[in-house]
Amino acid sequence: MHFFGAQLFALYALTVLVFGCGAPLKSADEVAPIFDNAKSLSTKMLEICDLVSNNQAEPNFSNIQFDRNGCEAAGTQSQDLKPNTEIILAEVKTRKGNDLQVSRNGTQPAIASSATPATDSSNEIAVGTRLQIWLNRPLLKMVQVLVPALNKKTEAMANDGSTATTQQEQSKFKIKIIGKPQFDQENMSLKLELSVDSKRSDNSMFDISNRFVINGGLIKKKYIFATITTAAEADVKTSLIKRGKILLFVVPHAKDIYVDVVTDMTFHAFGVDAAMQEQILQFLRKALRMIPDFLEKAENL
């Protein structure tokens, strides 16, 4: 076959393949979304960041150490969700007074490298964490299993219009929705308030009792972004958590679902920071584990 014949054959083969695969001919404008789909994860996260950072009210990045750089680093320290996987925190920051320690790769930072005088009057300790996790399932499947689960959970609320309680068997967190959640259909946003209680005898060495406000919704009809903030500062007598904020990103990407959870919580300190830090991280791992656990459970309903 001479050169012209080869070109013809190639053109023929391409035409057959394109039509044979059922792909219709598309204009440049029509194929643009295909390339749009090839956005990187960090590009998607930056889309969320850029929109959210301009928000005057929640959900936004106020009162938390998180910015565009954080969005850009999405997925770089992620783990895959598998049954019984231990939650590895991608990043841990601890702050006591002006002393900030950061660690990555699941290790824990030492809050202080040397002993400090017993008269240290700082009575709070801030712990920031980041969890990056791939749920290992496409969103469509999640929707199929989550909708019945959500409906079941919310049925009682729809009936009495007020509250619903849930309790994770292992972690013994009692979560109660306060009042009526508000859904804004125009902006596809949701606001709800809930109380979280955990007694020391059930769960850990301390009591937790806080009210949290969740503000979130759909961003660009593609992504979910929510903030969870403490409604008020809690006294040490009622809760170890003094105040805090959590950012939750849910981004469908590469036929999987990427979940990024950034926490910045301030705890009452007891002058034994190394022990506190271990307890707090254990608590946060347990609390964060509830997110994938809920998704796992929903699939089995």
Partner: peptide
Amino acid sequence: ALACSSGDAFKGGTAERKPPRLAPGS
């Protein structure tokens, strides 16, 4: 569900790749 069935970005395109991990897996 609508977003998924319409082939919108929700599905996550085949051309999409997960970012390389700087840290080891769990």
